[in-house]
Design a protein around this nucleic acid. Structure first.
Length: 875
RNA sequence: GCGGGCGUGAUGGAAUGGUAGACAUACGGGACUUAAAAUCCCGAGGGGGUAUCCCCGUGCGGGUUCGAGUCCCGCCGCCCGCACCA
């Protein structure tokens, strides 16, 4: 018969707003730059203000909040800010579709999302909030731009854009669908524009080398960054034209990373944008048509490389550089990129898949020159698959028998010694795939580039005392093109140098610029300069940055570049902005469709049955619904769950807990109804356990609990505190959750025995355990923790409490259970004192019945003992 | 096309090269209840043997090792990025 009275269920709808207000009133999460405690900066990637938060945000911010709250409990001065990545295309699209001004639309969205975020109980320092579209923010960005320009980090050059000839506008890659503009449906053309660039490629080597030092980053991100920078050693090589009068150019210069395969060359190919291709096209309408055709694809690399290999024979030939008397045909080919190397290649089909595809199509020679080990040189041939592996060089004259590496060196020195004109025919060169960062966007809703174009003086920086260049509000979106261009007065200004009439730059900056330094701005968000260097240097680098893998390359690389650029211009003093980086997985959900194939929201359906018989029907009509694959939550497939709805139904703590509990944070997590309900049940279980601990403490105690039992509960508690701390520090939130479950289950079981027979020492150790449990859940379910903390009669708020101390003596056991294997298969176990010497362990292990049976009377051949862990008997 | 990642019970997942399946969800059985919900207890990778035991098992095929989910090689499947989505 239980002596404990039942309690009311925990009600998050009442408790959560109450604690949110308490935190706000006490300014619990506002942080001072002058606080003497050790600083810790935790940052989640700020969101684009689309208008609604989604479950991906909930997951991301829940993780960051756990770290922030944990570090606070650990005595750090924690900076945990939030803001808005507020410039960008969607606002302009909305303006075109609904007529709302981008500014109005964006700030309304920010308001709505902020309200949503506030219900999550995240420990942000909202006093530092800003949006990148705030004039205060982009004014400072313009200062950075001018400083970077003066420091030689900005340049202007030609680059290609997707041009929609009907809308007369530049399209983003995502606005090009199957080669057509998404609104007009017109075939997209490539067009050259003069644009502004940041000289990130000046830092290629530095950005590459410094990756080695980023040991707080996931390996996969580091590998992706290395590959993106794409350092390669190769040879710049001149091919002499055969001279048939079609061009005055004496040579074609190619870049190759495989000069060792020169004897296998069977063609030379030019990019459609190569100057020689342009020159030849002037006199060759068919070539012109081919190049135009190439220009009718978008600028996206993926599309270009996926397109079928196509070429056009120019009629030109070049002398084979190592086979006297032979020539090679010169093509223009759609897969050769002008941006990389020299915009021209030589093709060795036997050892490059693209070259092979091309050669098969145009019936060119395929001459293998690298022989894989074990192959017969007389019979080795290449079919439909190029051989790109190791081997020795053959069919290659003076290179025969060399390794690939030696052949590369040998051929480089060979061509280095030959003069064509007054240049060496071959020069060793290091190339990087990384291109300069084009920042010009022909759009309204972005940070204006602070430049004025004068006919006499060219592009001139807007003088500092005339900054910021503010976006005009009175713009319209009814005409195609950039509204800044159409504005009647905005762009007409006088030249800062000569005062004559001049034009403002109407391009705005890539929104990646905005997000490349916001983390620094958070350290002094209202300063009249981009940063306050002393303050920024104290907070940065960010100790833990968290966001999606989709930003693993560009955003992180640009931010790394900006840290360097800002250091060069005196705004910071560090190269690397993010010490710790973590990429979280996506939130995925089943998809549902009705019989007409339309997507249906999860909230509109009812699921029935399980396993094979599991099926769904529409909640109101009862019509059958097809259950589809599990995919990333997206509006288009309607497999979304609204965080607002979840918070209303289950509370923020439950949503946070579920997002943290179910999957390792770097992996995708599947949203399920069962999962969120399980999380909700745990919330009630904790509340009930706290209540029981309080009641038990008030019961008249009779007798004492056994010392071993008391010790066991103490150990359980201390181990959980230790393990949860370690798990949070290692960002293994799902493991932390599992360890909390174990503690909670253990304490609940103990509480049940005490309810039947209360003891004084028992209720003390239970209360201690429950108090610690509450602290362990506090980073994840902060509202529930505060309510429990108050109920337990603890002083202050758990948000301000120090992380519980661990008694290291309680973490070790004196006896260990060792598994005993025979030939690697577990056959039994032995329990021994920790540190038992090998010979004693062996004796005990061999005396096991199961081991004796497997040995069948024979002596073991070998016994392997890993102290305190495992014994393996080799029979 | 190129680059990166992932793959373990019904499900999410745990496991410094050392007892595979912790913890949770779903499920089955039981207790409580007039009944249900909630709660609590028990069970459970698959197969065979009525106890105690054996065989198989971490996407597939090989390899290294006393021992492989973990390391290596080759496949298959799914996901992400590719420079103007953010």
């Amino acid at each position: 018969m239980s002596q404990v009275k039942p309690i009311e269920r925990y009600n998050p709808r009442v408790e959560e707003p109450r604690w949110q207000k308490a935190w706000e009133d006490s300014k619990s999460f506002e942080v001072s730059n002058d606080d003497p405690r050790e600083p810790y900066y935790v940052l989640e990637m700020f969101p684009y203000p689309s208008g609604r938060i989604h479950m991906g945000h909930v997951r991301n911010y829940a993780m960051g909040d756990v770290i922030a709250r944990y570090r606070r409990a650990r005595g750090f001065n924690v900076l945990h800010p939030m803001g808005w990545d507020a410039f960008g295309l969607p606002a302009e699209n909305a303006a075109k579709q609904t007529g709302s001004h981008p500014k109005t639309w964006t700030y309304a969205n920010i308001d709505a999302m902020k309200t949503q975020l506030k219900t999550m109980g995240l420990s942000f320092d909202w006093s530092r909030e800003f949006a990148t579209c705030d004039v205060d923010y982009y004014a400072q960005q313009q200062k950075l731009f001018t400083d970077m320009m003066r420091a030689g980090l900005v340049t202007r050059k030609q680059s290609k854009v997707n041009w929609d000839p009907v809308d007369e506008t530049v399209l983003a890659n995502e606005q090009v669908i199957d080669g057509r503009g998404w609104r007009s449906g017109a075939l997209v053309e490539q067009r050259e524009l003069t644009q502004w660039f940041f000289r990130i490629s000046d830092y290629s080597e530095d950005l590459l080398k410094a990756i080695d030092g980023l040991d707080g980053w996931p390996d996969k991100v580091r590998i992706m960054q290395r590959n993106w920078i794409g350092k390669s050693e190769g040879l710049r090589l001149l091919f002499e034209l055969d001279g048939n009068g079609k061009t005055g150019a004496p040579t074609i210069e190619v870049f190759t990373t495989r000069p060792d395969t020169i004897f296998g060359a069977s063609f030379v190919a030019l990019s459609p944008d190569h100057p020689l291709a342009t020159e030849l096209a002037a006199a060759d309408p068919a070539l012109k048509a081919f190049i135009d055709e190439c220009h009718r694809q978008g600028t996206a690399t993926a599309d270009i490389e996926k397109a079928e290999k196509q070429g056009y024979f120019t009629g030109l030939t070049v002398k084979h550089p190592v086979k006297a008397g032979e020539t090679l045909p010169v093509y223009v080919a759609n897969f050769v990129l002008m941006d990389y190397g020299t915009g021209a290649i030589f093709g060795c089909p036997a050892h490059d898949q693209r070259d092979l595809d091309f050669a098969r199509k145009y019936e060119l020679n395929v001459i293998p020159v690298v022989l894989p080990e074990g192959e017969d040189p007389a019979t080795f041939s290449v079919g439909s698959e190029a051989y790109t592996g190791p081997g020795s060089i053959f069919h290659s004259g003076f290179l025969d028998g060399l390794s690939i590496e030696d052949a590369k060196a040998r051929i480089a020195s060979h061509f280095g010694g030959i003069q064509i004109g007054n240049r060496a025919q071959g020069v060793v060169e290091t190339n990087y795939r990384l291109r300069d960062w084009g920042v010009s966007r022909q759009r309204y809703w972005g940070c204006p580039i602070p430049v004025i174009h004068c006919d006499e003086h060219g592009p001139v920086l807007v003088p500092d005392d005339q900054l910021p260049v503010v976006l005009p509000d009175d713009v319209t979106f009814d005409k195609p093109g950039n509204p800044l261009d159409h504005h009647p007065t905005w762009k007409h200004v006088s030249c800062p140098v000569c005062g004559k009439p001049a034009r403002r730059e109407t391009d705005t900056m890539d929104t990646f610029v905005d997000s490349s330094w916001y983390f620094a701005r958070f350290t002094a968000p209202r300063a009249a300069t981009p940063t306050v260097p002393a303050v920024a240097n104290r907070w940065l680098p960010v100790d833990q940055y968290i966001g999606g893998v989709e930003h693993a390359i560009l955003h992180l690389l640009y931010s790394r570049f900006f840290a360097r650029a800002m250091s060069k211009t005196g705004h910071l003093d560090m190269d690397e902005p993010f010490r710790g980086m973590f990429t979280q997985g996506m939130v995925v959900h089943e998809t549902y469709r009705d019989q007409s194939g339309d997507w249906v929201l999860p909230s509109e359906i009812v699921l029935e049955g399980m396993g094979e018989g599991r099926h769904a029907r529409h909640a109101t009509t009862g019509a059958p619904i097809e259950i589809g694959s599990i995919e990333k939550m997206s509006k288009s497939k309607k497999n979304v769950v609204d965080p607002d709805e979840i918070v209303r139904t289950y509370g923020a703590d439950t949503a946070r807990w579920f997002m943290l509990s179910d999957s390792p944070p770097e992996r995708d997590v599947q949203w399920t109804e069962a999962g969120i309900e399980g999380a909700g049940r745990f919330q009630q279980r904790v509340w009930k356990l706290v209540h029981e601990a309080i009641e038990i403490a008030g019961l008249p105690a009779s007798g004492e609990s056994a010392a071993t039992e008391i010790e066991a509960i103490g150990k359980l508690t201390h181990r959980a505190v230790h393990a949860v701390g370690e798990s949070i520090e290692g960002l293994r939130f799902n493991s932390a959750v599992a360890q909390i479950y174990e503690l909670s289950n253990g304490l609940a079981k103990f509480a049940a025995t005490l309810e039947a027979a209360p003891t004084a020492n028992g209720s003390t150790v239970l209360a201690e355990g429950v108090g610690k449990l509450v602290q362990l859940i506090a980073p994840m379910m902060p509202h529930l923790a505060e309510t429990c903390w108050a109920a337990l009669g603890k002083s202050g708020m758990v948000a301000d409490a120090a992380w519980p101390a661990v008694d290291p003596a309680l973490l070790v056991d004196d006896t260990v259970v060792m598994a005993v294997q025979v030939n690697g298969k577990r056959r039994g176990e032995i329990s021994v004192a920790k540190g038992t010497p090998g010979d004693l362990v062996e004796k005990q292990a061999l005396s096991l019945d199961a081991v004796a049976r497997m040995l069948d009377g024979k002596p073991p051949r070998k016994v392997i003992i890993v102290p305190d862990r495992i014994v393996n008997v080799v029979a």
